[in-house]
Simulated scan of single mutants.
Amino acid sequence: MTLTELRYIVTLAQEQHFGRAADRCNVSQPTLSIAVKKLEEELDTTLFERSKTRVSPTPIGEQVVEQAQRVIEQASTIRDIANSGKDQLTSPFHIGAIFTIGPYLFPRLIPELQKVAKDMPLYIEESYTASLRKRIRHGDLDAIIIALPFTEADVVTQSLYDENFVILMDKDHPLSKETSIHPDQLNDYNVLLLGEGHCFRDQVIEACPNLKPSLDDPRGKIRTAAEGSSLETLKYMVASGLGITILPESAAKADHTWSDLLVTRSFTAPIPTRTIALAWRASFPRHQAIDAVREAIDHSGIVS
């Protein structure tokens, strides 16, 4: 058996679909299917139950996949140890960020990183927290930038900065006359939120619990029907007159395209905030690279 085959079965167990697993592994579906079948023949056991709609590990398959995951993580540690003997600021650095951070931080981070580590190219990935969690564990990413709280075994997390939430609205919106807004004042307006899976959506609802849809409110007093796929999409919808939205301050400041149409307002105290953090495996040996990324973020001016 090979590490590649082990990665195939781990990915297949996660996706429970040959097509999606093949896409994640950047191979054709037949290639992945043949490799899995070959491994099953080598082990003389069935690892997956196959049906027309899904693929799921057998009881013995679950044990094999769990052990395969450990092997992959240990192999990643071996690579890290080998790389530690090289110049830590010349090898590529693989970094991921959640969707509500990456588009606003990376344009500021990269120029600053060029000043302190000009020979360290970045491979950049944006995804959900759950996906980045798996990628850092598997060794596919060297570090990730996420919003707290975040805990993962054998992963070090360090806070980078805090940023306030702000309310974005049309300049003629009734709430634009306010200097600051209490969450309860949003109750009578259509508030546009990100879709399920975004941690920022959960943080907004935690800060403004009245925005959470309720089965006990059939009249729909709190309307959150429109769910955008990105913060930029929410901006477009606000500009077109569909409602108001809540953004992290970095996203609100990032684009002046709509400056003549839209305004932001702060919340009343206590102002909702989020803490952004850098996370990396405790075994990752390129400490200078981590320090360089952290220093570049400190000097990026992402928050004022």
Rank of each mutant, 00 (worst) to 15 (best):
F93D: 07
K253A: 11
V64D: 01
L261Q: 15
L211C: 12
H138W: 07
D217N: 13
A143T: 10
E227C: 13
L132A: 04
Y8K: 06
T58Y: 03
I72V: 12
D255K: 12
C199N: 14
A254M: 03
I81L: 15
G85T: 12
H173K: 01
L148D: 13
Q114Y: 11
F106N: 02
Q14E: 15
I101F: 04
Y123A: 13
G96H: 08
F106S: 01
T4A: 10
G220A: 08
L160G: 09
T245R: 03
I81P: 00
D162M: 08
D80N: 11
V55G: 05
V293A: 08
R219W: 10
I246T: 04
L113K: 06
I146K: 07
L261D: 14
D188S: 15
V191K: 02
T90Y: 03
L109M: 12
D202E: 15
I246R: 04
T77M: 10
S230P: 08
W280D: 01
G96T: 08
I290F: 01
E41H: 13
G243W: 00
N190Y: 01
A13E: 04
T58A: 08
D23F: 11
H173F: 09
E196D: 13
I136C: 06
V293E: 04
A75V: 01
V71G: 06
I81H: 11
K235Q: 14
E206W: 00
S131V: 14
I9A: 05
M237E: 10
K253V: 04
R219I: 07
R70C: 03
V155R: 02
S51N: 06
T157L: 03
T90S: 14
I34G: 00
Q88D: 08
D202V: 11
D255G: 10
S214Q: 09
L122Q: 01
G301D: 11
G61Q: 03
P30E: 01
I9N: 04
C199A: 14
A254S: 15
V27L: 01
F150M: 06
P103M: 06
D119F: 11
S159G: 13
T31V: 12
T90M: 09
A277I: 01
L39R: 09
D142V: 06
S180F: 09
F18V: 05
T90F: 05
R70M: 11
V65W: 00
D87R: 08
R79N: 14
I95K: 06
A153V: 10
R219F: 12
G195Y: 05
A22V: 02
N187I: 12
I246G: 11
T11A: 04
K118V: 08
P248H: 05
G85E: 14
R70L: 13
E62S: 14
A282R: 14
L43P: 03
L186Y: 07
T245V: 04
D87C: 05
N187V: 10
R265T: 05
A279P: 01
Q69H: 06
T90L: 06
G220Q: 07
L211I: 08
Q88Y: 07
A21G: 12
F267N: 01
Q185M: 14
T2N: 15
A282N: 11
H138M: 10
R137L: 13
H182T: 13
I9F: 03
I9T: 08
G243R: 00
K253P: 01
T2D: 15
A225D: 14
K37W: 00
S283Y: 00
L148V: 05
R265I: 00
A226T: 13
K253C: 06
T233C: 07
I72Y: 02
I9K: 04
